[in-house]
Simulated scan of single mutants.
Amino acid sequence: MIANPETVPTVRTMLDKYAEALEPWARATVTRMLAEVNQRDARQWAEQAQAMGLALRKELHQAPTGLAMRRLMEEQVTLITSLPREAGERVHDLVIKGLEDSVRADEIAREIKRSGQVTESRANLIARTEVARSASTLTQARAEHIGSEGYIWRTSGDSDVRHSHKQMEGKFVRWDSPPTLSDGTTTHAGQIYNCRCYPEPVIPDL
């Protein structure tokens, strides 16, 4: 028996409503994650503060991280709530394709079930990427506030580092000019999917 296309809008509507219902949870979850990343970044700066002048340490406490936090919040909530909507679009496409190709309903059902695995995989990708991106973005906000013009690109130093990122190890990068890597991507360290690199700020002498 072929799936009834009239059921597809219902599935998509339900998933759209689920995405809307997810927003408060997504916002609370992202808030906690950003707070943890912000505290970790602040601690790392504090550990280096002993080597800094008193004026510079005071400036670090006044860094305008709030704007960066709010921007990250909205971007990450949008990413999380997009997952069920994307699943709904995939279900719709699978059913329509099944009708066009006369695919049996049980085969369509198997593909739909596999959609959950695709969504889970993307959810994990978002989580890994956004934690690293948040850390890099907050480091940039604090560094620029105290006059840093750029950073040294650092990788995690293991065999999983992408070739294009390995080529960036030890290079100076300006905050206002993210580099275009050899694979064609333009990004700062730690600010692209699955990137475990990080920026080592170059602090001006005061």
Rank of each mutant, 00 (worst) to 15 (best):
R128D: 02
H188P: 09
S156A: 10
E75D: 10
A141E: 15
Y151L: 14
H165S: 14
E107D: 10
R142S: 00
E149P: 01
A143D: 11
R133H: 12
D93V: 00
E149R: 12
P179F: 00
S102I: 05
T65Q: 03
T180E: 02
L125H: 02
L54K: 12
V131L: 06
V131H: 08
H61P: 01
G190H: 02
L94G: 06
A127W: 15
H163L: 06
K171C: 06
I108P: 07
D106S: 14
A123I: 01
N124L: 08
R70Y: 15
A135E: 15
R71F: 02
S121I: 01
T129K: 05
A105Y: 02
M168W: 01
G150L: 14
E169F: 06
V95I: 09
A105M: 11
M69P: 02
T119F: 07
T78W: 14
S164G: 07
Q117E: 15
G88C: 04
T155H: 11
R122Q: 04
S102E: 13
E100S: 09
K113E: 11
N124S: 04
E120P: 00
T129F: 02
A143M: 01
V118S: 08
H61G: 07
W175H: 12
R104F: 01
S177V: 03
A68M: 06
Q191W: 13
D106W: 03
S156G: 07
Q76L: 03
M73F: 03
A189R: 03
D158C: 00
L99Q: 13
H92I: 01
W153R: 04
M69W: 15
R71L: 03
T137K: 00
A143W: 02
L79A: 06
G147N: 07
V161E: 02
R90G: 02
D101V: 06
S115Y: 04
S159G: 14
W175I: 14
R133T: 10
T185F: 09
L83T: 01
R154E: 15
D93T: 01
G150I: 14
T185R: 15
K166A: 08
D106A: 12
R57Q: 13
R133C: 09
A143V: 00
T155C: 04
